[in-house]
């Protein structure tokens, strides 16, 4: 779904749910989403989202696991 289609659907849904105050706020979210989608790390979606980041060895996803 492109951002224009998403924004139109979201605004219609907010209106239908009785939340018209959300409509201008959704414009702000759309801008942030546009920025996110244009980011260069999205250029190669074939790569593993985490291994592609690290030059060596991949990220250790266990690091920082909450302890009890």
């Amino acid at each position: 779904m492109n951002i224009a289609e998403w924004l139109e659907a979201a605004k219609a849904d907010a209106e239908a749910r009785g939340l018209p105050e959300l409509i201008p706020m959704l414009d702000g979210l759309a801008q942030a989403t546009e920025r996110l989608r244009k980011a260069d790390w999205n250029d190669n979606a074939e790569q593993d989202p985490f291994d592609s980041i690290e030059s060596e060895g991949g990220l250790d996803l266990s690091q920082g696991k909450p302890s009890q």
Binding site: R37, W41, I53
Partner: peptide, 8 residues
């Protein structure tokens, strides 16, 4: 996409 950005 945001998760990928976080790792970056």
């Amino acid at each position: 996409r945001a998760l990928r950005g976080k790792a970056l």
